[in-house]
Simulated assay, not measured.
Amino acid sequence: MQFCTIETPLGQAKVTGDTNGITSVSISDTTEQLSEIIPENLLDCVTQLKAYFREERQNFDLKLNPNGTDFQKRVWQELQKIPYGKTCSYLELSKKLGNPKAIRAVANANGKNPLWIIIPCHRVIGSDGSLTGYAGGLYRKQWLINHENRHKQQTLF
C-alpha cells in the first residue's frame, strides 16, 4: 500500500492506494510533511484532485478500491451518481437504493465513505435542505457545496 500527502484549500489530504486502485482519500487539520514524490499508482488521483480544486474537473475517472460492506459499497456507488453542483437528501438516496426506511443506515454508510470528494458524500443534505453531519466538518461540506455551485447563474427574480 502506498500513500502521499498533498495540500488542498481545505487542509492536507492523504491519498492511499496500490495497483488495485485508490482505497482512501482523507482530509485532516494536522500538518504532516507533504509528499515530494507522488507514487505512480496515486499520480492520477492527485492530478484529478488538484484539477477539481482549480475548477477544471467535475468528475473523477479513477480505479477505486474502497474497503466496506456490500451495503456500504452500494451506497457509495449511488453517491457517485449525484451530479456535480447538485445535492440529494438522505431520504432520496434511501429511495434510490430501494428502501426509504434505511435512512439511518444510508447516513451511516455515507459517514464511512473512505474516498473524500471522489465519492461525493458532501452532496448529501437533510430533507429540509440543512447541512447535516460530515466527517470532515460542516465548514468543509459548505465549502465544497459552494465550490461546486460557484459558476451557476444567479436568478434575477
Rank of each mutant, 00 (worst) to 15 (best):
E40N: 09
I37G: 10
Y139P: 09
T19L: 08
G126P: 07
P114S: 10
V106M: 09
W116G: 01
R123Q: 06
K112F: 08
Q153P: 08
K81T: 06
S130I: 04
D44E: 10
Q77C: 03
I125A: 12
L93Y: 06
D128S: 11
L79M: 12
G68F: 03
L131S: 08
S130V: 07
H147V: 05
W76M: 03
G111H: 02
E148N: 07
Q72A: 10
P39W: 15
R150H: 10
R74S: 07
S127E: 10
P39R: 15
L62V: 12
S127Q: 06
G136P: 08
N67A: 02
G136W: 00
L64F: 00
S26H: 14
C88Q: 10
V124L: 11
Q48S: 08
Y139L: 13
V106S: 01
G85H: 14
T69I: 09
N99G: 08
K95W: 01
T132C: 10
P83H: 15
T132P: 02
E36Y: 10
I27V: 13
E32Q: 14
G21Q: 11
A107T: 07
V46H: 05
F71A: 04
E78L: 13
K112N: 13
R140Q: 14
P66N: 04
L42W: 07
I22N: 01
F71R: 00
D61S: 02
R57N: 07
Q72V: 03
G133S: 14
Q77D: 07
H151N: 14
E56C: 03
Y134N: 11
N146Y: 12
R104S: 15
I125M: 13
N146T: 12
Q154I: 03
A105Q: 15
P39C: 10
Q33H: 15
K50Q: 05
D128Y: 11
C121D: 09
P39Q: 15
E56L: 04
Q33W: 11
W143D: 11
V75S: 11
Q154S: 09
Y139S: 15
G111V: 00
T69P: 12
K86I: 09
K141M: 07
V124N: 05
